[in-house]
Amino acid sequence: MTAVLTATGVEKSFGPERTVLDGIDIALLPGQLTVVHGARDAGRSTLLRCLTGGYRPDAGHVVLERAAGSVDLAAADPRTLAWVRKHHIRDFAGPLAAPPSQDAASAAARSAALERETAVAGLRRLGVAELAEVPLGRLRRTARRAVALTAALLSQAAVVVLDEPDTAADPERVLDWISELRAGGTAVLAAPSDAHPFIARASASAILTEGKIQWTTQ
């Protein structure tokens, strides 16, 4: 099977002092769950953002391969990047950027380009049905993250990348939903806070240390 997203030689530093990623290779396959873990501050969030185009890597390539063609996110112009992130790659990296007066279900629905009822069902599925009617501006941070996670899991993108999904909602519910996405052919990459339950169900897992990745299962 060919990878839907292939990263090679990805490097990222913040200022001259802090090299966070020092040559990362990763391939995400349709239907697989890849788990990245590591110590706090190891750079998992940075890696995930580089893989989804949220950050521009200093070096390397991140190639999305689809039936219609391929794009290197590390080199793509911003308009192409925005397009790819709307149609092919979906990330959960924090709360949604949405008007604070908007209710949670509407914000998730708009973000996932789905009907509001679908978002309501999604919130219920994650165990946070009670958030649906509440304006985002009145939610606490964890609840706002749960709304964003719902939107990501609903999005039906070919690649779904989740940063600490287990601290936004019940991990078992998240894992069950991920299984369903995989059955539909989605490639999922997750960097959970507590890696064990995720590793138990992963196709591949890797540890990130000193800016490099070591595969622990394959």
Binding site: L64, R66, G69, S70, H87, H88, L114, G185
Partner: peptide, 12 residues
Amino acid sequence: PAAGPTAAAQVL
């Protein structure tokens, strides 16, 4: 509504 991961959406 998105048409699922197999949809042949353009990459550009």
